[in-house]
Design a binder for these strands. Structure first.
Lengths: 229, 229
DNA sequence: AGCTGTGAATATGTTCACAGCG
DNA sequence: CGCTGTGAACATATTCACAGCT
């Protein structure tokens, strides 16, 4: 077997250590900045510059990349386009993802109309609710379907990612049904900590918690975010 | 000086080590669970139970509390109401916060109508935009004001927290104006890393990044979130 | 006996610093 | 000579384990 390929596989397949959550977010940010540079016609970029744009450090950039292989040229920096491509592949954003929206209330509605999802590769392919008033209704160019049909809809449309925008008390049960149907990643807007089996990824978005974090920082002396020193 | 008071002050005032971001989020979650328990009439709770409800471990709960003092009774656990009160004070959520919304577009609109903000103590006291079509308009029971008046509005209404929901390219400049006006905490919905002076807290909410994180986890072997052995 | 509070041990994440390639 | 890739040093966060109160 070819050496480079072996190396690549050993990077892609498991035994490499788990990538931290914050590292994943940084990859996302790198891709975004690289796209902007690509559009601006920049051919190469050193870690220092990419770091400045992404709000981190040069060492962090290089360390982040090193978990996946060796993308740069010493003395030269990184070639923008190939790097963007490889990071996109690693992130899994070099494709489109069919996404399920559960909950056609206020939050679900806002998310459905958020244009950046589609422009970044995430397409809503179903909207589910359980209210008899909503199910069957034509809604923003899509028909709202009943949550009870999730077991048919998810495999039928190849869905693996769902956005959960239902009231807190319903979230756990609905999430379990999603997982039974085949969903493996959930973006959870309910202020509820979901108990999920291994192999299911959950990302919580809790806007009140974000404001409360600011409240804490402002309340506790205002001494946070002290400059580097 | 009284010993307990000395101890209290040494906890409240600075030299205690900085609280991590994740610890702050957990505090927020504890408060929410404690409120539910209070409503359910539960008098005391051991760390083990609070941990289970908040999705963490008993040791983590105790460690989190220990940075702020000593709230429990050995052998008994924690008294629900007093604990909820003290944590609320620490988080700064034992009061109401006037909040500024900047950007009356789709995202701003959804945030303005999100009912949990008000119910959790955060009140929008101004909505700013710079579009001539929007400024001056009556909007959801509030009048949209011009961003240029931020330097008057922020001190006038005692605003320290702002929610930034403007397009990416405008975010940095608007954020600087907010800070000049006196804002010290920003919840940023623009997909832009803000460069801010020390003393200003920024929390980013980037929904695309959250989906991309799921995309990564699903793409990389699906071997994440492995059960604890 | 049950449970907290906490130092000590471990695990995880970030920064440093430098060897070595282009 | 600039810049990457990376082990080693450091910093931070989590878990363990147990002394000590109730």
């Amino acid at each position: 077997m070819d050496l480079a390929l072996t190396r690549l596989l050993s990077h892609l397949s498991s035994p490499s250590r788990r990538i931290s959550d914050s590292a994943i977010r940084r990859l996302s940010r790198y891709v975004r900045e690289l796209e902007a540079m690509e559009a601006a016609g920049e051919g190469t970029v050193p870690s220092r510059v990419l770091a400045a744009r992404a709000g981190t450090t040069a060492a962090q950039v290089r360390k982040d990349f090193s978990s996946f292989g060796s993308f740069g040229k010493r003395g030269m920096g990184y070639a923008v386009s190939p790097l963007r491509e490889r990071l996109s592949t690693i992130l899994g954003v070099d494709r489109r993802w069919p996404v399920l929206l559960v909950g056609a209330g206020r939050v679900g509605s806002a998310l459905f109309e958020y244009p950046r999802f589609r422009s970044r590769g995430f397409d809503f392919v179903a909207v589910l609710d359980h209210s008899p008033e909503k199910v069957g209704r034509e809604w923003k160019g899509m028909r709202i379907e009943h949550v009870r049909d999730v077991a048919r809809i998810v495999p039928e449309r190849g869905i693996r990612i769902a956005i959960l925008a239902v009231p807190g008390p319903e979230a756990q049960k609905v999430a379990e049904d999603l997982v039974s149907a085949g969903v493996r990643g959930i973006l959870n807007f309910a202020p509820t900590k979901l108990r999920m089996p291994p192999g299911v990824a959950v990302n919580d978005v809790d806007l009140v918690m974000e404001l409360e974090a600011l409240s804490f920082l402002l309340s506790s002396g205002g001494k946070m975010a002290e400059g580097p020193e």
